[in-house]
Write a protein that binds this DNA or RNA. Structure first.
Lengths: 138, 138
DNA sequence: GAAAAATGTTAGGTATACCTAAAAAAGAGG
DNA sequence: CCTCTTTTTTAGGTATACCTAACATTTTTC
């Protein structure tokens, strides 16, 4: 079994903070499939790295640096998922794949893929070509 | 620092076996930036998992299962790198990104991307659209 | 073919992301 | 405000991918 990355923790905290104002140990644990004591430990590490503020028994909130990381990850995720969907991959699968890929693409590549996604949406000829590609695919 | 995955070991052994008939501890260590004792240990694990044959002081060769994994990885790598290159990403960067992404895409998605790469090469209108996309990009 | 050089393995240790079980703190209901 | 419940943390332990230093084997060279 692979360990969760810091990025996955930050994303989880981001989502929980949006929904509940802060991310508590138990909520993070439930979402990530990791036991609470491990979360406590990890929150200590994330705080030492300046990505979250953390108070015992209260929960965690992202710092500016943490938010920046989270937003970049969300953005990357969206670009990848959109690209895969445009290329005819089922949204559910596209999301699942994006979840993994997002942690392993360079910024530069993301930027270029984003431009392609935009182009594929705006340019009529490209839209057409892609439509033809998708016709007759599973 | 992230640990090397089994897949990375298998790929390295594959390449070395192609070039030298077998993969020796030192060669693997040099390529992967991991010290020889760690390689010895890992080769034991890979053998227990049925991915390589391994003899002390002689080196490792891939089993059928190991070769299958290696070939699939190489194929996935090529599909991803080709796709990125088609979308205007510099080959060197495309290769680097593919090296990471290849370990995190579903088979199903790879299959679909492969079809897209083929289409992008064969279909004139698509080729044209992509050419227009790439014009005026860095 | 023996000594020297190169290569590989063993022994022992570190760091870290996880776990379970037990203790502690916070929150809710009477 | 005191007990009961829920939530969190502490304490202590495991597994694993790495490392260095020391030892063993193989290969090369004279």
């Amino acid at each position: 079994m692979r360990y969760k990355t810091i990025e996955e923790y930050i994303e989880t905290i981001y989502v929980l903070e949006l929904k509940h104002g802060r991310a508590q140990t138990g909520m993070i644990a439930a979402r990530m499939g990791v036991k609470p004591p491990s979360i406590t430990e990890m929150l200590g590490k994330l705080e030492r790295e300046g990505l979250i503020r953390y108070e015992s028994y209260t929960g965690a909130t992202l710092t500016v640096a943490g938010k920046k990381m989270a937003r970049e990850l969300m953005h990357t995720h969206k670009v990848i998922a959109d690209l895969l969907e445009i290329l005819g991959i089922d949204r559910t699968l596209a999301e699942a794949d994006a979840c993994q890929i997002e942690h392993h693409v360079s910024r530069e590549t993301v930027a270029r893929l984003e431009e392609f996604v935009k182009f594929a949406r705006e340019d009529e000829e490209m839209t057409d070509s892609i439509r033809r590609f998708r016709v007759g695919m599973p």
